[in-house]
Design a protein around this nucleic acid. Structure first.
Lengths: 244, 244
DNA sequence: GATGGCCTTATTGTCGGACAATCATACTAT
DNA sequence: ATAGTATGATTGTCCGACAATAAGGCCATC
């Protein structure tokens, strides 16, 4: 009675086709930017009907492995970028009823080391982006939507300067999830606008000086401050983040 | 000449259909577990051909918004779980040529706070899982593949105990990416097996005691140790992680 | 020589219908 | 209650078709 059998896996054709093509993309046989063969040719090569190919293509398209440049017909292989991955992740997070508190906790963990790394790995280009983000926020922090965008760009600039390409990818969905709550915060707690601006400037200065320790500390304070702000404007931390 | 126009966005039918259904899932009109209408019915409702519906379904399927329970016909709405999200993320990371160093850095950032949170938020159930993971590693650390699995399960147990549902989702792809390098490490550096076991026990004990500080410190040491191990067995930190 | 118009062809988006395989269900017989 | 059987619904896959539109070549024009 110990004869345990694995359920034998069937796979519909469109899934196998998608898998085959995906494998070629992942092992770089199909390079990024390269156009895919036409649907009819793929159908001929796989020996199946075009409908099946199309279903497989939709699957790959949704997985961000292929895409069509605007106004063009041919599909090309693409490398999933932060924005696409973030969208998918945000969806998953939102459907799992993630709370504002959880998102904020992740930022509390991620951002201080990010600032520290940025101070160590900064380059003229990345530094310029951070400074421009700070200036942008300064110039726009009076309108809530623009201010939210500015805060996001600041964090993106920091993550980009950290030299770790995982950070932007992981951070992006968190920022998107927090955007709504941030908007409320900035709208409802005017002093927060000023505090954010000051914190950004300190962090930016510390990074420019290459002072990782200082950048880290200021960033930690900055993130903690967001939480205070949420409490001030009565955003319930344990309610699920609103869906985009 | 400042008349700048937005490119007017057209969207093929299958994409709009997928968008409509996705919206219903995200706003909870369609609840998790609920079966989708049949393809013919959807086609009738949208007033389009079944082919189009099928392409839209493939898109949603690939986005992990719908799925089919094994051996059944009807599609049901699902909530994307860690495993699925992780797979997608891992793909994105791998295609972006993320290096072992970057993955390791993220763990260095994430894991110590995770251990600390776990010490604070532990419950009998989560503690039991951690202990069972430690015991499992102890029992299996002689065979490299099992040991890698054990290390993964340890980290998963910690993240699960942290009380933050984002952590498992973010951590999972990192573990998957590191699995290959870990296998090499455990195979090539026998003393590492023992060191890992000891670190796990210390961390586990600290969490059981509710000593967050201690758990954090041991975890930091533990993660740093991995890096030493990689250097010992000459895994080049700046080569891209191998694809799964 | 670059630009714009025009034609042909290839390709995609969408439709309709078809059929076998198989899942779901109700019914029957044991 | 269980196993077998018949029936209908649904999916997987195929075929063929056609309109709309990129792609690419050719030509006239300036």
């Amino acid at each position: 009675m110990s004869a345990r059998f694995e359920p034998l896996a069937f796979a519909p054709g469109y899934r196998r086709v998608a898998g085959e093509i995906a494998a070629r993309i992942l092992d770089r046989t199909l390079k990024v930017g390269e156009p895919l063969p036409s649907e009819l040719e793929l159908a001929a090569q796989f020996g199946v009907n075009r409908s099946m190919i199309r279903e497989a293509l939709r699957e790959l398209e949704s997985a961000d492995l292929i895409a069509r440049r605007r106004g063009t017909k041919r599909m090309v292989v693409v490398r999933p970028a932060a924005a696409q991955v973030a969208g998918r992740l945000r969806q998953a997070f939102a459907l799992n009823d993630v709370t504002v508190r959880e998102v904020w906790q992740m930022l509390e963990v991620l951002e201080p080391p990010a600032a520290q790394s940025a101070a160590a790995a900064r380059t003229p280009a990345t530094l310029a982006r951070i400074e421009s983000a700070v200036a942008g926020y300064r110039g726009a922090h009076r309108q809530a939507p623009l201010a939210v965008e500015g805060v996001g760009e600041f964090f993106r600039a920091i993550a980009g300067a950290s030299g770790n390409r995982l950070l932007p990818l992981i951070q992006e969905p968190l920022l998107q999830l927090l955007a709504a709550a941030l908007g409320v915060l900035i709208e409802a707690v005017p002093p927060a606008r000023e505090r954010i601006g000051i914190a950004q400037e300190r962090i930016c200065a510390a990074i420019a000086d290459g002072d990782g320790e200082l950048a880290r500390n200021w960033m930690a304070k900055h993130v903690r401050d967001f939480r205070r702000g949420f409490e001030l404007c009565r955003i319930e931390l344990d309610t699920p983040v609103p869906l985009g």
